[in-house]
């Protein structure tokens, strides 16, 4: 069976005044129907760029190559109008900052009506009211609040409204771009509860973009770990948590603060993300990697399969003679 979403050799560059930023470099992964995957990595690793690229919402200075197949259609090749029809109906998206995601001078109701009119121009008002009320109810907000303005809502309510908007038309996929990052812990839990609930009740796939590995463990069954625009490791969530293969995944998991742990110091990954205008040759993680070898500095590691997982590291299977990764050289 065909995957619901298949991303193949996706590369994204941002053209800036000071040069080209290689935000995403040759990543591939797929999402099956009803799968939930987590796109994980530290800030600036390209995870949001990847998520935003799926709906074609990147700023105009972004250059995208590769393919994003949704139900077999390449979203990078279809016309703007066709892509518009996909947005909100087949794939919808929620964002990091709920405080600014709703138009401040538009009633909540009109946000829903805009969505419905964009996809069903002939829908009558009663029908629209019914759908909006139900969507709002499903995230635990009274339908009477439809007449409110966003400024009359709290941050958590706004994010729930965004979710209600995203699921109103029963899309087959939801992209959640750090949906809990800007909320406090209690509200975070509320939002996660809503998302968990949705996963159960609706047949929806989810792409969860986050740097919070705790959130990932709760919600998804597959994880894609990104580092500096490269896909470091991807696979089943439990096996990755149990036995991380890539040194970066390992370091990332070790840096989760744990109150029960004996050591009183926070663990962290020394060094910082490389400059993506001028990424290091070879593996992008080598300047911070404790297992660095000579080949890491010279050649980009190939993506190999280990125990049903994909990992891009010279530690696995990549013999020195294995040569340069074919897929990455084909794109660039």
């Amino acid at each position: 069976m065909m995957a619901l979403l298949e991303i193949k050799n996706l590369s994204i560059d941002y053209l800036t005044r000071n040069g080209t930023v290689k935000a995403v470099d040759d990543i591939s992964f797929s999402v099956e129907a009803r799968d939930s995957i987590g796109l994980v990595g530290e800030s600036g690793c390209g995870k949001s760029t990847t998520g935003t690229a799926i709906l074609g919402l990147l700023p105009p200075n972004a250059r995208v190559s590769g393919s994003i197949l949704f139900k077999g259609r390449d979203l990078l090749k279809i016309s703007n109008e066709e892509l518009r029809k996909v947005r909100g109906k087949d794939i919808s998206m929620i964002f990091q900052d709920p405080m600014t995601s709703l138009d401040p001078i538009m009633r909540i109701r009109d946000h829903f009506f805009e969505l419905l009119r964009a996809h069903y121009p002939k829908m009558d008002e009663n029908e629209m009211k019914k759908i909006s009320s139900e969507a709002l109810k499903s995230v635990g907000i009274e339908p009477s609040r439809l007449n409110n303005y966003p400024f009359e809502f709290s941050g958590g309510m706004r994010q729930r409204t965004m979710i209600a908007l995203a699921i109103a038309l029963q899309p087959s996929m939801l992209i959640a771009d750090e949906p809990t990052t800007s909320l406090d812990v209690v509200i975070q839990e509320q939002i996660l509860e809503v998302l968990r609930d949705l996963k159960k009740t609706k047949n929806m796939s989810m792409v969860l973009i986050t740097h919070d590995l705790g959130v990932v463990a709760e919600l998804v069954n597959k994880v894609v770990v990104m580092y500096a625009g490269h896909l470091a490791e991807s696979g089943d969530v439990y096996s990755i948590y149990e036995k991380p293969l890539h040194p970066y995944t390992k370091a990332l998991l070790e840096s989760i603060p744990n109150v029960k742990l004996e050591d009183r110091e926070l663990r962290y990954i020394p060094g910082s993300l490389p400059d993506l205008k001028n990424p290091p040759k070879g593996c992008r993680y080598w300047p911070r990697c404790p297992y660095v070898k000579d080949i890491c500095k010279r050649e980009t590691p190939p993506t190999v399969e280990v125990d049903g997982r994909k990992v891009k590291c010279w530690l696995y299977g990549g013999e020195i003679n294995a040569g340069i990764d074919k897929t990455s050289s084909a794109v660039s």
Binding site: G88, D103, H111, E114, A118
Partner: peptide, 26 residues
């Protein structure tokens, strides 16, 4: 460049609406 414009696009709003109803009105 605000988030609600991106969000409106993500909802499938037509470009004309995005410009005049969201961007210009705000």
């Amino acid at each position: 460049s605000s988030q609600y414009v991106v969000a409106a696009r993500a909802r499938g709003a037509k470009e004309k609406k995005v410009i005049f109803k969201h961007a210009l009105k705000n």
